[in-house]
Write a protein that binds this DNA or RNA. Structure first.
Lengths: 210, 210
DNA sequence: GGAGAAACGGACTATGGTCCGGGAATGGAT
DNA sequence: ATCCATTCCCGGACCATAGTCCGTTTCTCC
């Protein structure tokens, strides 16, 4: 797929040469982890199990992925990348081509669905305490861009973060799984929220801080 | 059962009589936990340490508090109760007596401060995955009430939850401790958010502007 | 004082994460 | 091509900690 004209995939400046066995093991571990997560669900997967499945020592996993969260983040990477691609270059209204407001109103429910779909995995991939940083910061960046495009004034980074916060996995999980609210209702409430935030009227909002 | 007219303070219908030693141990454990959390911080406190400090077996702690999170919730209880009292019956603008909007705008920053102050403890008190249910549902209830009082129309429970979500400990911790944003800026952004949400203009939402 | 129920406590298990001695891959020298 | 020195990696024993289990102890009520 990648149009690299070189035999080895992009040595990338002075990338410290990766030993062949290391790469092989990394792949084996990731592969085993993906399979196990698919079969048993993220929170039933233990590191020892992954190690055994990949025929690899436990230490190897931790050296390559740092922690359980790191491994889960790697497992998650595929679908998360797909999501980001759909946002960046997919068809409207999620992708470019639609009005920024439309794109925003499409983004929330889509992110919500994504969060519910991969809930366990996303939580497992969250750093010790906090959300999965990569996924989160992409969302903030995108929403912030859309808000600017729409012409919203104010502290855009924090406004974007505030719009994303109600979609966080623990929040929506509690609402859906504990309170039993239907997903459509969450979606509707979120778009309502977004419209309220975006709605013109300049409530105050000083000039955006640097 | 029969309304037992016993001399002990409020047996509460048919409360199963609590054995004296059980109560004593419970107190000892809680006391030790409070002290240790105060001295070392919530995440340096292990169950074994608490057990040793309270001169009690580890099993006893788990029987009484269910889990580490349960114990931490009990430790947290004091300050959380204090916070709720200030909201329910304290002086304005947080307490009753001020306009609902003023109360709302006071509530957010106060909750924010509370969350930053007891961040570690609040996270430790959160159930396996999710927020501390008691604190959260109180906040939702209160904000929901204020929104109704202000005359906001729409899905109030979810709107309230959406207003509270950006104040969640993991979110604000990341913003303050990782990104280094000043607390005042978070406060300002939240009140801006609240004003936007409350601002009249009926974007759509449900009918019944009460 | 005795019977029965409840609680105690610490050994035990499960799991994430660390450490370090042994060993293989790599690149250069012969 | 072979061999050697270096470097990095491997793997599983080891540790810390949350949570469970069950024989023993202690309380309560009659």
């Amino acid at each position: 797929m990648t149009p690299t004209s070189s035999p080895v995939p992009l040595p990338l400046a002075d990338a410290p040469r990766v030993r062949a066995d290391a790469a092989r093991n990394r792949d084996a571990v990731l592969c085993a982890a993906v399979r196990l997560v698919g079969d048993l669900g993220a929170d039933a997967v233990t590191m020892d199990r992954v190690a055994a499945e990949a025929c690899v020592g436990k230490g190897t996993i931790f050296r390559r992925f740092g922690s359980r969260a790191g491994l889960m983040a790697a497992v998650l990477d595929g679908s998360e990348t797909g999501f980001q691609e759909r946002v960046i270059s997919g068809p409207p209204p999620l992708g470019p081509g639609a009005d920024p407001l439309e794109r925003l109103l499409a983004f929330g429910p889509e992110r919500l669905r994504q969060n519910l779909l991969h809930g366990a995995l996303l939580e497992a991939a969250a750093a010790p305490h906090g959300r999965s940083l990569a996924a989160y910061s992409f969302g903030v960046l995108h929403v912030r861009y859309l808000l600017a495009e729409i012409g919203v004034a104010g502290d855009l980074p924090l406004l974007a973060s505030a719009l994303l916060a109600p979609l966080e996995v623990p929040v929506v999980r509690a609402q859906v799984e504990v309170q039993g609210l239907p997903v459509e209702r969450l979606s509707a409430a979120w778009t309502d929220l977004a419209r309220r935030v975006v709605r013109p009227g300049a409530p105050r909002g000083g000039p955006a801080p640097a």
